[in-house]
Simulated assay, not measured.
Amino acid sequence: MPELDDKTRTELEAAAFRRLLAHLRARTDVQNIDLMNLAGFCRNCLSNWYLDAAKERGVALTKDESRVAVYGMPYEEWKAAYQSEATPEQKAAFPGPGSH
């Protein structure tokens, strides 16, 4: 791998993150519980990590604002439009709170 300066590395990481967000926004059929069960993180995790990064840098950002940054809309709006009730199998596989 070529040696990257910090600016280029940050730009590449930001581009990859934006592409991940676009992919997740397009794949509304993939439920957060599925992401958690398979990968150990979900859209809410990403929004929390985004919020943590903002706080570390002294940026005033709310939880709702961080969720809009990830979901592309208010979370409650996304839930109403795209979230379905978890199946018993999904619930059984869910690692539970605090596991991520």
Rank of each mutant, 00 (worst) to 15 (best):
E11V: 00
A69E: 08
E13R: 04
A80T: 05
V70L: 08
E65C: 06
T8A: 12
R57I: 02
D34L: 11
W49E: 08
A60C: 09
E85F: 07
C42G: 15
A26H: 10
D29T: 13
K63S: 11
G98V: 11
E56R: 13
A54L: 10
N32K: 15
D29W: 06
A22V: 00
G98E: 05
E56F: 10
I33S: 06
G96N: 10
R57M: 09
H23L: 02
H100A: 12
V59T: 12
E77A: 07
P97R: 13
F41W: 15
A15N: 06
K79I: 04
L12Q: 09
A86E: 06
K91G: 01
R9L: 14
S84R: 14
P95S: 09
L24N: 08
P97K: 12
F94C: 10
L46N: 00
A60E: 14
A54E: 02
V70K: 02
E89M: 03
L12N: 03
T8C: 04
R57P: 04
S99H: 12
S47K: 01
L12V: 03
S84K: 14
D34M: 15
L35P: 03
P97I: 07
L24H: 11
L46S: 00
W78E: 01
Y75I: 05
H100M: 13
T8L: 14
K91W: 02
A16S: 07
E76I: 08
M73H: 04
C42P: 05
C45I: 07
W49N: 08
E65T: 06
T62Y: 11
F17P: 00
A39Q: 13
L35I: 11
A60D: 15
G72I: 05
E65W: 08
A69S: 10
S84V: 08
A81L: 14
D34E: 15
K55R: 15
V70T: 11
G96R: 08
D5L: 04
F17N: 06
L61M: 15
F94R: 06
K55L: 10
H100T: 10
L21F: 02
A60G: 07
M73V: 07
M36Q: 09
L35E: 09
S99P: 03
A86G: 05
Y71C: 03
E65G: 06
L38R: 15
A39T: 13
N37Q: 13
G96C: 09
V70N: 02
Y75W: 13
A14V: 07
P74N: 04
T28H: 15
Y75K: 12
P97N: 11
E65Y: 06
S66W: 00
R57H: 12
